[in-house]
C-alpha cells in the first residue's frame, strides 16, 4: 500500500475538493478563470492555533481583515471563518464584479461590497463544510455567513478558549487575472467533532 496516511492529509484532500468546487462555482458566476493554490491543513491545539493565526493576521493582513463566518452545532460543533486581508478585498470584489474603481477604491466598504463577500463566503464555506459533511455523512446545519470588517483583528476573536477544542488552519490563494488574494480558513471545532469525522473516514476507507 502507499505510505502512512495522516489526518492532515485526509482533511487536506477533503478541503481541496471543497475549495475546487467553490472555485468552479465562483468561476462560472464571474466568468473568469481562477487559479488556486493547494491549501495545506494544520491541526493545532488552541494555543498553537492562536499563535499561527496571529502570525497570519499581523503579517499578511496587517490587522485589517474582512471575515465571513458561520457557526454550526448539532452533531458537529464549531465555527468556520474565512479571513481575507481588507486592503485586497476592494480589488477582489472589483474582479468579481468586472469593475475598476481606481481611486474610489479607498472608499469604505458599501452594503453591496458586504453582500458580494457574503456570497463568496457562502460559496466557499458551503463547499468546504458541505464536502466534509457529505463525506462523513453527518448532517451539519448552519446559517448564511456573517460578514464583518475588523481593523485590528486578534486570534481570540476566531478561536474559543473552551477546553477540548481544536483549530484547523489552512491558507488558500486565489489568483484571478494575475491578482493574488491570500486568505485563511480557520475552523474551530470540538475534539469530539474532529474525532467523529476522522473515525468515520477511517471506517469508510480501511480494509480496502
Amino acid at each position: 500500500m502507499t505510505g502512512k496516511v495522516n489526518r492532515e492529509d485526509i482533511l487536506k484532500e477533503l478541503f481541496n475538493i471543497g475549495v475546487g468546487q467553490a472555485a468552479g462555482t465562483l468561476s462560472e458566476i464571474i466568468d473568469k478563470k481562477i487559479i488556486l493554490d493547494v491549501p495545506d491543513v494544520k491541526i493545532l491545539n488552541v494555543e498553537l492555533g492562536k499563535a499561527e493565526l496571529d502570525k497570519f493576521l499581523s503579517q499578511v493582513a496587517e490587522g485589517a481583515v474582512m471575515v465571513s463566518s458561520i457557526s454550526f452545532d448539532r452533531q458537529l460543533e464549531g465555527t468556520v471563518s474565512l479571513i481575507f486581508p481588507a486592503d485586497k478585498m476592494h480589488q477582489f470584489i472589483d474582479l468579481c464584479l468586472h469593475e475598476d474603481r481606481g481611486e474610489e477604491a479607498s472608499m469604505e466598504f458599501t452594503d453591496i461590497d458586504f453582500d458580494t463577500v457574503k456570497e463568496i463566503g457562502n460559496i466557499i464555506l458551503n463547499a468546504i463544510i458541505g464536502e466534509l459533511s457529505n463525506t462523513v455523512n453527518i448532517p451539519v446545519e448552519y446559517t448564511l455567513p456573517e460578514v464583518n470588517v475588523l481593523n485590528s483583528a486578534k486570534a481570540d476573536l476566531f478561536v474559543s478558549d473552551e477546553a477540548y477544542h481544536l483549530v484547523l488552519m489552512m491558507y488558500i490563494t486565489f489568483n484571478i487575472e494575475g491578482t493574488h488574494i491570500d486568505g485563511a480558513i480557520v475552523i474551530n471545532m470540538t475534539l469530539k467533532s474532529l474525532d467523529d469525522i476522522l473515525n468515520t473516514i477511517d471506517k469508510m476507507y480501511d480494509g480496502r
Binding site: N16, I17, G20, Q21, S27, E28, K33, L36, T135
Partner: peptide
C-alpha cells in the same frame, strides 16, 4: 482526476487529448 471543476480549466485540459476528465471526489 481533479477537484478543479472549472469549465475553463476542463476545456483547456480536454484540448490536451486526455482520455477523460473525472471530478473528485
Amino acid at each position: 482526476v481533479s477537484a478543479d471543476v472549472q469549465k475553463r480549466v476542463r476545456d483547456v485540459i480536454e484540448k490536451m487529448g486526455v482520455l477523460s476528465f473525472i471530478n473528485k471526489p
